[in-house]
Design a protein around this nucleic acid. Sequence first.
DNA 1: CGCTATATTGATATGAATCAACGGTGGTGG
DNA 2: CCACCACCGTTGATTCATATCAATATAGCG
Lengths: 205, 205
Amino acid sequence: MLFCQGDVWDHVLFIRTGWVQIYRQFPNGQRLILRFVLPGEPVGLESDGGAMPYTAETMTAVTGCLIGRAGFFLACARSPALARGVAALAMRETLVAWDHLCSVGRQDARGRIAALLLDLHRRLTPPTEREEVAEREGAPVRVPLTQTHIADATGLTSVHVSRTLKRMRQERLLDFHKGELVILDSARLGALAQPDAPSVTLTPR
Amino acid sequence: MLFCQGDVWDHVLFIRTGWVQIYRQFPNGQRLILRFVLPGEPVGLESDGGAMPYTAETMTAVTGCLIGRAGFFLACARSPALARGVAALAMRETLVAWDHLCSVGRQDARGRIAALLLDLHRRLTPPTEREEVAEREGAPVRVPLTQTHIADATGLTSVHVSRTLKRMRQERLLDFHKGELVILDSARLGALAQPDAPSVTLTPR
DNA sequence: CGCTATATTGATATGAATCAACGGTGGTGG
DNA sequence: CCACCACCGTTGATTCATATCAATATAGCG
């Protein structure tokens, strides 16, 4: 547990290895995972300096670079390039949140799970290996999630995630078992996850 | 229509008066409203400079300040304070998106609508008048939304929004008719919208 | 060994979507 | 002035997706 919703946390942590989950918890005991933090990504940037509006908890052993919040923003004030980079990071963060929002707000269980697992799979694949999509299909990737994690990230129930994963396995879309993710048919999965509409074909208004 | 998903839009627009909706559209014709932009807020900041990943459309007559994207970020590069401000803006934007995500992912129709309308009502009320919550109850506020807007922002159907608003009206929670929003019982509405869990009372893990 | 967390499966309940019809309203043009 | 039309909201009947409740299996772990 890095910090808990409500804590004051005057640091920023850049993950080098391991996974972290960022989530909100609700009075009724439910929670919603906002983001999985992978190596190279920051934790704790989104804050006004007061109580953290979310919880950060490690999912595996984690190493990273811990920086004091005040010092970090002091450095930003001295380096416009750094400040600009942080702004770009934060804006990309918003776009990621909006993708997530669309997935949860407008897709069914299969679509949400497809979107989540495809996104994780993509982020875990070095960009140099892109374009060889077919190559990567069938290769197992280590993804330290439980079905409960998937449920909490997609706004579903773990029971329903279990059923849906079973169905997707039967449909030869993917296989997910014991933290091993195998993408079997990225084309059909991508269609399920409904990538952004080709805006050219949409009549505006 | 300020710009359409897929367009290149090399500007940033700061709204002075009027409302703008930011949304994603999907191949099947559905859409999801990501954000309502109110006076004082920016449009088009979240972008990598390429095709816009969302559509921005005016909901009323709008005035504002239109700035070239390149010039704006040039100014950021010269003024660390400005860059820092933009970064803070973007981070707050992410927190807003996460609130929205929680609402859509973990609440029922009443909760989602309550959260949306309370949020709009709060943003429309000058901060100087805070603490006089009871005062503001019962005062109608102009909110230029249709029920379809509410549906597209909450991930529901306009049919279901109609039924749910009727029920909330009968429960004396609020009244929304023809763009006039009246908050009747902000306490019960706030409970429905499930504000952040009081993290102190939650046992971590 | 029993503990706890995780996954699976079945039966049932429920919230929301869908399909369909209809009424009001404002705008537009004849 | 009226006829028409597009949009918006309402309501009812029905279907469907997902939640809920409950039982069981399994595996890791101290």
